[in-house]
Design a protein around this nucleic acid. Structure first.
Length: 859
RNA sequence: GCCCAGGUGGCGGAAUUGGCAGACGCAGUAGACUCAAAAUCUACCGCCGCAAGGCUUGUGGGUUCGAUUCCCACCCUGGGCACCA
């Protein structure tokens, strides 16, 4: 396509170069190369029907500029894109419209792709894939099977949100203030059979390895807090009148045990019924029932006021030998520690509040070493404190007492030092259609044992079992050669009404005759194909959306591979992303889940490193004009399509990067965009005259002034450094300064102009390609190498010395770098403003910082 | 409540091994060009003051010859966590 426009007509220029790049495969990464690699990655987008928003544009702009810069530096750059396309919104839309999710997904991807191309993002589209492609989810299922075989996947009944009116299970984000997001119907917690991944087995490594990562500190801190490691002790308390059981608690402050005056168990504690005495039965039952009806959210919301009930039984404090009452209260969580605590009201705010309400004693056992009286509860945070009222631990520090007591309880066989995590195992199933099916066949124990033995199937050490429709079933893995296990084609995605996935209704898919060695299946309604085929039932749950995004960065290294998730060679060469850019909202879940899978793959020898994302960056949120979050209801949404139509993609990209620091939250100012658009117009006019021909001021043989040469070199240096450090806003300022200077020159050398276009190109690639071509270059700018600045030119032997009197700026002067203090002082005295300040005063002191300041202290 | 990040002109922001506060851009003012307007160009553009000068980086203290930058206390905004024993 030829363009001869005289004006800066981005509507012609941008499509021209987008087509050129696509036709020439300009951004295709070389699969095998001697060049060093650079892998840039954006967080996996969900192709929603709404299309790209400004946040996407900012995100991809940041990475695209980096990718283009690295290409210019000679790196073999992998900069891919794909689609995280399974998930709820598409499924809900399909239910509503009766269309197939596959078709809806295709359409949404087409919209996104068109928009991305209009933005001029330099993706290698030849590597594009979607998590919904059977050739992709084949490997998602394969990885899941490895987790399953390692014993990292198990089945458990877990409470999920159930909406009776909608007849379906809802995700957390679909429940707002205890009502369904759609329709505002009441919801309740209902236990359903779920797959759970044992991420807690990796808790220590996930925490420990955070330290090495080049991530924003706040993100690392959030993950660390989420994992929540705490060191403490387990202690078993004897029970009065019960010699078979003991009550095990976890505490981080075993040193306070002499102050433990009661125990608390969670309502769901396994010993709850046993510990309840007949007179307390009614009260305890009422309390348990009330607690069960509350969601976790309600429990914490209503947590302002402590509630609880006495069980009627007593434990023996192993330190004091005294009997202490056992209470039940929902401020103790069943899911953390052992679900039971020893309460030390004098030194724990929660226990104190509870003890106050129920009139339980509060003996002080910790005091400041100084001996000053304190108010209870006294919760020391590592200050200088010692124990009191603690028998032979009196006078010890908490550390010393903890060591002593741990040892003592260990010797008694009732305790030990231990570690607890806040991190819970990962609920890894959804009762939905539009997700990856689990490659599992539920069979009888007999068939399971037979199949495993006769086909040498690799299975977990402890078989995974579940009660399904009243029958105990065993989870038999589908052979890897039978993957992918596809979703059945169905005509309706309506919920079943029972909480199960719509798959539960597809009887011919669900109930099968199954060949365990090959994974072949036929509907159970048909005759049994051969004697060794067995009756099986498929898993109706599907995987959550996280599954596909847990490993996609590996697939980009070798997306067409049909023998493995990616070849060894590709994984060795491309490794993991050198930069990963996306929103901070994924700080915990996605980034933690992906790290977990990556570590499992590392342990299996599939990947060569143990961390997926070594360098991470979060772009800041673009707020609406009014400084509020952009939202349709506020009517403050800026639409990228419209902006591109009126100003072009180059202007949009440049402006997004110019708004401020990339990681800061910034309001969108629709008038500010004029400024960067004017800047591009100015560049256009400097290069091209009103006839569209090269500007006559650009001459091949003219010499630029030393000032212009220095500014150009300074610009090359600063833009390069600023890109590398993700400070794009100041890089753009520098280019504006340079453009303003060039505009004032009567002549500019062609070389200078071309060099400037090169440094601007990563930010505004279309206009730069066009001008580069108009100035007579034959090779595309996208394949030109980054200019090298001359450090010698940047050195000067004179610099501005600032004169201060009593620390206040009074003047300045250009002086040799090596000027002596005396000579500088002499110059300063000659300066009229300085002289005026010195009038009638004596110089008491002189501070001289060569090349910077000369400060005269006068009295 | 706890943890973190941040408060700089009318606006977005720049400057920190402690050394000219306000780069660059928006908005604004005046002028040039034009029949006129747009576009473009030139100059000005933190506050007070005619000026000299004084004041000024959320507030109040401190360290220093010198503080947007370091220390202490407080206020505000945003984000995260929230009975995790």
């Amino acid at each position: 396509m030829e363009t001869h426009c005289k004006e800066y007509d981005f509507r012609q220029i941008e499509p021209k170069w987008q087509t050129f790049w696509a036709e020439n495969n300009t951004f295709r990464a070389e699969q095998a190369s001697n060049r060093p690699k650079y892998y840039a990655l954006d967080m996996f987008p969900y192709p929603s029907g709404a299309g790209l928003h400004l946040g996407h544009c900012e995100n991809y702009g940041i990475t695209d500029i980096m990718a283009r810069y690295k290409r210019a530096q000679g790196f073999n750059v992998l900069y891919p894109i794909g689609w995280d396309a399974f998930g709820l919104p598409t499924e809900n839309y399909a239910v509503k419209t009766g269309r197939h999710p596959v078709d809806v997904t295709k359409e949404n991807i087409a919209t996104f792709t068109r928009q991305l191309k209009q933005l001029g993002v330099s993706y290698d589209f030849s590597r594009e894939f979607s998590t919904t492609d059977p050739e992709y989810f084949r490997w998602t299922q394969w990885i899941w099977l490895q987790l399953f075989k390692k014993g990292l996947a198990y089945v458990e009944d877990k409470p999920v949100w159930w909406c009776a009116a909608l007849g379906t299970v809802l995700a957390n984000e679909e429940v707002i203030d205890g009502k369904s997001e759609v329709g505002g119907h009441p919801v309740e917690r209902r236990p359903l059979r779920q797959w759970v991944l044992r991420i807690t087995a990796y808790a220590d490594r996930l925490l420990e390895d955070l330290k090495e990562l080049d991530w924003p500190d706040s993100t690392k801190r959030m993950q660390a807090a989420w994992i929540g490691r705490s060191v403490g002790s387990e202690v078993e308390f004897d029970l009065e009148g019960n010699l078979t059981d003991r009550l095990k608690i976890f505490t981080t402050r075993v040193d306070t045990i002499y102050g433990a005056t009661y125990m608390v168990i969670a309502p769901e504690h396994v010993l709850a019924q046993k510990l309840t005495t007949p007179p307390q039965q009614a009260a305890v039952n009422a309390y348990t029932r009330a607690a069960a009806g509350k969601s976790d959210l309600e429990r914490t919301e209503l947590a302002k006021e402590k509630t609880g009930v006495f069980t009627g039984s007593f434990a023996i404090n192993p330190a004091t030998g005294r009997r202490i009452p056992i209470w039940m209260a929902d401020y103790v969580l069943a899911s953390y520690g052992t679900g039971a605590i020893m309460a030390v009201p004098a030194h724990d705010e929660r226990d104190f509040e509870f003890a106050q309400k129920f009139g339980l004693p509060c003996p002080q056992v910790i005091a400041p070493a100084e001996g000053t009286a304190v108010e209870l509860p006294f919760c020391d945070k590592g200050g200088d404190v010692v124990l009191m009222n603690s028998a032979d631990c009196n006078g010890l520090t908490p550390g010393a007492a903890t060591a002593k007591l741990d040892q003592r309880f260990m010797a008694e066989g009732r305790g030990k030092s231990t570690v607890q995590f806040k991190l819970r195992d990962w609920l890894f199933s959804r009762q939905r259609y539009w997700g990856e099916p689990f490659p599992i066949a539920w069979v009888s124990e007999f068939d399971y044992r037979n199949a495993v033995a006769s086909h040498q199937l690799s299975v977990p050490e402890v078989p995974v079992t579940a009660m399904i429709e009243g029958v105990l079933r065993y989870a038999l893995p589908v052979p890897e050669t039978a993957l992918p296990l596809r979703l059945p084609d169905v005509s309706s995605y309506e919920p079943t009404g029972t909480g199960e996935s719509p798959l539960a209704k597809i009887t011919d898919w669900l109930e099968i005759w199954y060949e365990p060695g090959t994974g072949d299946a036929v509907p159970a309604s048909e005759p049994k194909p051969a004697e060794h085929w067995i009756r099986a039932r498929r898993e109706t749950n599907t995987m959550p959306q996280w599954a596909g995004s847990c490993w996609y960065y590996l697939r980009f290294a070798d997306p067409g591979n049909s023998d493995a998730l990616a070849s060894k060679m590709a994984l060795e060469y491309w490794g993991t992303p050198d930069i990963y850019v996306g929103g901070a909202e994924h700080a915990v879940l996605h980034l933690l889940y992906a790290r977990f899978w990556h570590k499992v793959l590392f342990d299996l020898g599939v990947v060569p490193t143990d961390e997926p994302f070594t360098k991470l960056f979060h772009q800041g949120i673009i707020l609406g004009e009014d400084g509020e979050k952009m939202s349709k209801s506020r009517g403050n949404v800026a639409n990228p399509d419209e902006i591109i139509r009126s100003y072009g993609a180059d202007t949009l990209r440049l402006y997004l990067m110019f708004l401020g620091p990339l990681d800061a939250m910034k309001p969108w100012n629709p008038r500010g965009i004029e400024g960067v658009h004017r800047f591009l117009q100015k560049i256009w006019r400097e290069c091209v005259d009103t006839e569209g021909q090269p500007n006559a001021k650009i001459t091949p043989d003219s010499e630029d002034s030393t000032e212009v040469v220095r500014l150009l070199n300074e610009t090359i240096r600063k833009v390069g450094e600023d890109i590398a450090n993700l400070r794009y806003n100041t890089a753009i300022s520098q280019m504006m300064i340079f453009a303003n200077r060039i505009q004032k020159s009567e002549q500019v050398s062609r070389k200078t102009m071309l060099t400037f276009l090169q440094v601007l190109a990563p930010f505004a690639p279309h206009i730069c390609e066009e001008l580069w071509e108009r100035l007579g270059e034959k090779q595309a700018l996208a394949s030109a190498l980054w200019p090298v600045y001359d450090a010698q030119i940047l050195k000067t032997n004179e610099s501005k010395l600032v004169f201060q009197v009593n620390g206040k700026h009074r003047g300045d002067q250009l002086l040799p770098n090596d000027i002596t203090q005396d000579a500088a002082l002499e110059e300063a005295m000659k300066h009229p403003k300085v002289a005026a300040q010195l009038e009638g005063k004596a110089i008491k002191r002189v501070i001289f910082v060569p090349g910077k300041i000369l400060n005269l202290v006068v009295g």
